[in-house]
Amino acid sequence: MMSQMILSWSLLVAQVMLGLAMFGPLWRVLRGPRAQDRVVGLDTLYVTGMLLLLTFGIRSGTVIYFEAALVIALLGFVSTAALAKFLMRGEVME
């Protein structure tokens, strides 16, 4: 009983903190000031979102959230790399 209480409270605290942590990158995505700030913001935003998903996965005890986190990690990498390429040259395909 005790351990359940500890776990569910720590999960709640962690989830609130991660939710708050999403505002920093979100601000950078929306406000910039420059394009590279937005890209770094987006990159951080998806990592934080992934962490939040992992805490949901621990709470529910199912694998689905972890599969989703894996997909986010993969897509995030590809999209950030493409955006960086775009910043470098102004076009994605060469």
Binding site: L18, A21, G24, W27, R28, T44
Partner: peptide, 25 residues
């Protein structure tokens, strides 16, 4: 003795992530 380390690690990880986010701001 398993629940306590898990709880500490969870809060620590979220806290570090929050520190990074504040740094970004």
């Amino acid at each position: 003795f398993v629940a306590i380390p898990v709880a500490i690690l969870l809060v620590l990880g979220a806290g570090l992530s929050l520190a990074g986010s504040i740094g970004l701001l």
